[in-house]
């Protein structure tokens, strides 16, 4: 993955046959300062998805996909309406759409 400028990128899209996914990726100093994953999907247990999201804060963007998959497996969270691959794709698209402040 190429180096990202500091700023925030956003993906908003309805997953075909699924739910709406909104992902914000905020970069600072080449790292993922903050990622926010929102939408009208379902995840069980809900709090486990909070922990998945928390595990992605401040990580090297090149590790995002691996860390997301590992955290989902570790937390035993099952997501409905949006796939993990959709979240990875949304992250990459958000990262390609950074708006430099």
């Amino acid at each position: 993955m190429t180096a990202r400028p500091d700023g925030t990128g956003r993906f908003v899209g309805k997953i075909p046959g699924g739910k709406l996914l909104k992902l914000d990726a905020e970069y600072a100093g080449g790292r993922l300062a903050r990622v926010r994953i929102r939408g009208d999907f379902f995840a069980h247990p809900e709090e486990a998805f909070d922990r998945v999201e928390a595990a992605l804060q401040g990580v090297d963007p090149a590790d995002f996909a691996r860390l997301l998959r590992e955290a989902v497996a570790r937390e035993g969270v099952i997501i409905y309406g949006v796939g993990v691959d959709d979240m990875v794709d949304a992250f990459e698209r958000a990262s390609d759409a950074i708006q430099v402040p």
Partner: peptide
């Protein structure tokens, strides 16, 4: 709002 939605959003 749903659990995973942004309130202000």
């Amino acid at each position: 709002v749903g659990y995973f939605q942004g309130l202000e959003e």
